[in-house]
Simulated scan of single mutants.
Amino acid sequence: MNHFFKSFMVFSLIALSLTITTPPSNASEKVYKWRLVTHSMVGTERYQTVVDFCDTVKKASCGRLIIEPFGAVVLFPVYESFDAVKNGIVQAGFVWSGYWSSKDPTFAVLGNRPGCPITDFSNEMYLEEQLMPIKQKLYQKYGVTYLGTLDFMPPEILCSVTPINKLSDFKGKNIRAGGIGALFYKALGANAVSLAAPEIYTALQMKTIDAAEFSDWKENKDMGLHEVTEYVIEPCLHLGSNEDKGFIVNTRAWNELPQDVKDIVLAVRDHSRYRSAITNPPQSIIAKQDWIDKKVKIIVLPEEDVNEARQIGARVIIEQAGKTEEGKEFIKIYSKVLNELGYKEQAEALGHK
């Protein structure tokens, strides 16, 4: 029985217990207090997932574990989250793995897969389960404990203030991108620009960038990007569905928790996945209509350009991931899963035989 199903069984028992009035915590039981950071901005639906996670852990543990959440850049820049968790400045984080590519190139491919054709929850979580051992091993190598992905992210959109009608139109464009997505856009001839989430709105408004990727229709709408976007380019080829929030914790803080509290944390993690599966995709579809109502024009790239871009994405992945043993193992597993799911051409581009 894998860890997902074990956690699901624990969560089922927790959910049942929560239908009854929660008894007060025994005064003799130790109360653990954590701080948790995320790259999601306060006020967005994705941030609410974090708040719900923290509230549910508190209830399910009868107040034995209290986690205080902090949104993007509230405590410090997002890029400092890894070291903050490692050093115990905060005890946990829900942060996208691609931000840590400067520490190890393998993090880039664990957080982002240029040209990925996977767009749905079940296949994405299946892939995440297969990649779990690699992610745990890599994070442990750098002194942090990895507990899986918290959230499901529908395919992102590319917001633009200028029309991009074909692949060649990417040349010379200034595009906000993160992680390996930046390398992908460079391979398309664009200039990659690094910007934190709160800076994207102004950059599009002032047209200091031509386009920006960050999240899906709903999240980007919550950030107001539909107000400063003239075009949305589909599909957003720098990644498909992906890990939105890698769950990282301070190793010492995690080891200090009693086993039953650890089980509660993992079970609530799986509940958050369920919440994201039934919330994020439909809300993204609904939000898309709001973009259309704002007169934002949707440009669909030609199929032949999409296929070419996916091939380019595969080459970027191979070049980046091939630098480490963990990265090579990632390619092996990723291409195998793509082949299993019927994406034969993409699997072959990654070397699957």
Rank of each mutant, 00 (worst) to 15 (best):
V228C: 09
T106P: 03
S215L: 08
G342N: 00
F4E: 12
G240D: 06
V193E: 09
Y79L: 08
H39S: 04
Y201F: 14
E243I: 13
D216M: 04
H352V: 03
Y32G: 05
Q140F: 05
K262I: 00
E29A: 11
P302Y: 03
N26G: 04
N112M: 08
F184S: 01
A72H: 14
Q130H: 08
I286M: 12
H226K: 03
W217M: 00
A253H: 14
I312M: 10
L18Y: 04
N339I: 01
A72T: 14
A92C: 09
E243F: 06
T19L: 15
L75V: 03
M125D: 02
I292A: 07
K6H: 03
N307K: 15
V296H: 07
E348G: 00
F214D: 02
S102R: 10
L16Y: 10
K332M: 14
L167I: 13
K353T: 14
L150C: 02
K166S: 07
I333A: 06
Y343K: 02
Y99V: 10
I286A: 14
N191L: 02
L110H: 05
V73A: 04
E319N: 15
T202Q: 15
R176E: 13
V42W: 07
M153H: 14
A287I: 04
L65K: 04
A182S: 13
F8I: 15
E243H: 04
F76T: 03
G172Q: 09
I200A: 01
F8H: 08
E227S: 08
Y274R: 05
A211E: 12
S102C: 05
E80V: 03
